[in-house]
Every structure is written in C-alpha cells, then in structure tokens.
C-alpha cells in the first residue's frame, strides 16, 4: 500500500465542545488508484487530507507512507515525503505573492535543487493552460488561474500521490474537465490521486468514492 490510514482519530474543540474531525478512519490507497471523497462541509474531509499529507498529526492511529509511520519520522524525513512523495493542492490559495507564476511552479526546486527542471516546469504550465501567464505575479491572476498554478506546482514534484482539496472549486466546466483529464492521465502513469470534491461530475473520473460524515469514512456515495 502506498498510503494507509490505520484507525486514525483527530479531535478538535469547537464552541468549548470536543468533536471528532476524524473518527477511527481506516483507509488505503495504492499506486494508480484514483479515489474521490465527498461529504458535507465540516465532515472532516480536509482534515483527512492534511493528516494523510503529514501536515497534521492524528491524536491516535497511524499514517503510513510506503511502510513508514509518520509518527516515527523526524521533521526532515516527513518533510522529504511531502516534498518528494506527495503533491498537495490546498483548498486555499497558497502561492508566494512575490514570485512569478513560473517561479511558483518551480518552487519545490528551492527545497530540493535536484528537482530543478525548467523544461518540465514549462511543459506543466502548457498542460495546465497557464503558459502565457508564466511571468505574471499571483495578484494578477483570477481564482481559477491561481488554482491551476497550485496544481502545476504539485505536479512539478512528480509525486507518487496527488492529494487535492477541491481542486476544481473555482474553475469553469471546461477547465474542470481539462484538469480532471490531467489527473486521469497521471493515474495512468502510476500516480495515485486522492481527491476531495463537492462536484458530483468529477466523481466519474475516479475508481472509488468515499463519503465522509462526522469524521467517519465509508466507501460509496451516501
């Protein structure tokens, strides 16, 4: 298994009361899998993705990437997994405002210089349809264009798994289709794709669909 969540629980306090963002979640995804997670707002979908990406630690249970438990890794080792194994597309807009689009896409090479590959960066910009914006700054882009920059940056690292939190939320129908086709291509190349979405049209691109409700994850569309 490429990535596995084993009885993962994550609690938060809201309004002075504890609630389960993740409640005993067991889940696994392997190379080339394309899974979609749906659920109402506040059901724990984003928490699940961030725990899976090693951006938040579970209160109990284990997250295992290629046999390595996150809880047993140092910050350097876990960061290396995020940088090399996982491509994370956050829900919010996460670009460096002072760098151009092309530099934002190439940003992982700042942390891992061995990843530097300008040709690949330009090819990804072409693929995501923002090649003409390469020298623009984030504040000059629309929400949809910014989303594509984040997707392009996640792809630049050639991750083994792409974890995307509502990647097509701000995109029009045509662009959504293009992006979903791109994800499908990736999975054909062996990249696992784990997607949270509210758009039912995008479910069709995946192999399986999971539903998140009150921190519990169940297979199928509820």
């Amino acid at each position: 298994m490429l990535l596995e969540l084993d009885h993962v629980t994550k609690e938060y306090i809201r309004g002075g009361k504890k609630f389960f963002a993740l409640n005993d979640v067991c889940f696994g995804i392997d190379k080339g899998d394309f899974y979609t997670i749906i659920g109402r707002s506040g059901s724990g979908k984003t928490t699940l993705l961030t725990v899976a990406a090693g951006l938040a630690a579970p209160d109990s249970g284990d997250v295992v990437f290629k046999g390595k438990k996150y809880s047993e890794l140092s910050d350097r080792e876990l960061s290396a997994i995020r940088g090399n194994g996982i491509g994370f597309i956050p829900q919010g807009l996460g670009t460096v405002p002072d760098l151009t689009v092309i530099d934002n896409v190439r940003l992982p090479s700042f942390i891992y210089p061995e990843k530097a590959d300008d040709t690949r960066a330009l090819a990804i910009l072409e693929k995501t349809g923002i090649a003409d914006l390469a020298q623009s700054y984030p504040n000059e882009l629309s929400g949809g264009e910014l989303k594509r920059v984040l997707i392009a940056r996640a792809l630049f690292s050639q991750p083994e798994i792409l974890i995307a939190d509502e990647p097509t939320a701000d995109l029009d129908r045509l662009t959504t289709e293009e992006i979903m086709k791109l994800f499908s291509e990736l999975r054909r190349d062996g990249t696992a794709v784990l997607l949270v979405t509210h758009e039912m049209d995008t479910i069709a691109y995946g192999d399986k669909v999971f539903t998140c409700e009150s921190g519990r994850l169940t297979e199928g569309k509820q």
Binding site: D75, R76, A80, F88, G94, T95, V96, I111, R153
Partner: peptide
C-alpha cells in the same frame, strides 16, 4: 503565515 505554511506543504523543513 500562508506563504511560510505553503513552503512546509511543498516539503520545507522547520529549519529551512
């Protein structure tokens, strides 16, 4: 914070 968090997302260590 958003910018620095983003560096963490793409694999930067705390030290970086």
């Amino acid at each position: 914070r958003a910018e620095f968090s983003m560096y963490r997302v793409i694999g930067a260590t705390k030290g970086r």
